[in-house]
Computed example of a mutant assay.
Amino acid sequence: MPGIAILGAGIFAKEAHLPALHALGSDAPPLLAVYSRSEATAKECSEAAVSLGLAPAPAIYHDGDAEHNLDALLARPDITAVIVVLPITLQPEIIRKAFAAGKHVLSEKPVAPDVASGIALIKEYEEKYKANLVWRVAENFEAEPGFRAAGKLIRDGKIGKVNFFKATVMNFIDVGNKYYKTPWRTVPDYQGGFLLDGGVYQGGFLLDGGVHTIGALRTMLPHPLTHLSAYASSNFDYLKPHDTINAVVQSAGNFHGIVELSFGAPTAANPVADQYIITGGEGWLTVNMKHTAGKSVLRIHLRRVVRDHEGKRLREEEETMDLPGTGVKSEFESFFEKIEGKETMDIGDPVQALKDVAFIQAGLNSEGVSIDLEKLVVEGK
């Protein structure tokens, strides 16, 4: 059976990707290899795979050994697809190498460190590789059953025409946070860069984590976001250069909303849980992500007006549903189905993922000026 490899052996690879592969069981191709820049982290990831029951132990590849480096891994004919989980600025180069080696690619979000480089990468894929290779961007919020169910409720007219929305996400990040200690978020060379006042602006947590929020909105809202006006700020020195974006947003469907996105919450207990509120002419729904005992659940709360056949208001109905957080597993399953040519979820489109990056880039650069998101995605500036 054709196998896969994981390129990158950090926290998310070990704590999310390996469990997802294990949960899929025989529906996932065998994990044949793990690559990391260091031998030690590659070994840790391989051992973690075995401890979960993924056998045999994935082969270890790392830099500094010509016989067991990334080029050697990509040369293996029994590996047909790779999952790329590397620092943001390194991913485009590795994705290109995988394409050139004839491998299907599932690359972690964001699609690229900035819009311009994302446009170039997508153009190269579409012109040279798309006919024969699958490339998907792993935005697990897009694959979450909860966000997808909320989107279907809205498309089915359960709250009527969408009038406005609000997304509030507040994250407490201190220097002891396991993700803060990774170079993805703290070393400028790995964070991704946006042009600001003629210099390079680093994305950090807002780029790496913020695209989740925009991906969730993209999944739920019936029309794409087209314009924003925002301000960004830095509230903690260790989270420089910016940790917060507040944006007012317009959509193609003539509705508008507010996005409050921060990794600069001052305490672990926040005044409001991560929440999405979408309001229509006939009702509203909220989506909250809850974490309990190591598991995540998305709770959808819907309240709507019920009318008779003449349109007369009869009553209001309320409904709550909890859906398990299985986004990583779902995106993996869909990726493997796509490779096999099966009908599957329409997720992971690099062009759509680029829109998430465009939102963050625009939010960091806006300084109160309205930015055309659709133009940014086309022109890269």
Rank of each mutant, 00 (worst) to 15 (best):
T292P: 01
P183A: 04
P19Y: 06
Q250V: 06
G264N: 08
I4V: 15
P183I: 00
I119N: 07
L228R: 11
V378Q: 14
L73F: 14
G281E: 15
A81L: 11
I277K: 14
Q250C: 03
S117W: 05
N288S: 09
A269I: 11
G368H: 04
T213E: 05
V105N: 02
G380H: 08
F12K: 11
G311E: 07
G53S: 08
R76M: 11
D356Y: 10
N140R: 07
A230I: 03
R76P: 00
V272F: 07
K109Y: 02
W184E: 07
L121A: 15
A247Y: 06
V200Y: 10
K97N: 08
A49W: 12
S36A: 14
L54E: 03
W284R: 15
G368W: 09
P324I: 04
S366F: 00
M321N: 12
L133E: 07
I214S: 00
G193M: 01
S251P: 10
Q352C: 05
E126T: 09
P19M: 04
A55P: 00
G102M: 02
G348C: 09
A23H: 07
L121C: 14
P58H: 09
N140M: 07
A358M: 07
V85H: 00
M1N: 03
V84Q: 01
N270D: 02
V378H: 08
V50K: 14
F332K: 09
D189V: 12
Y190L: 02
E67S: 13
Q275R: 11
L314N: 09
E124S: 15
I119W: 06
A28M: 02
A20M: 04
V134Y: 11
A116V: 10
L21Q: 03
P29E: 08
P110S: 10
D372V: 12
V105W: 05
L285H: 02
P350D: 11
V211E: 01
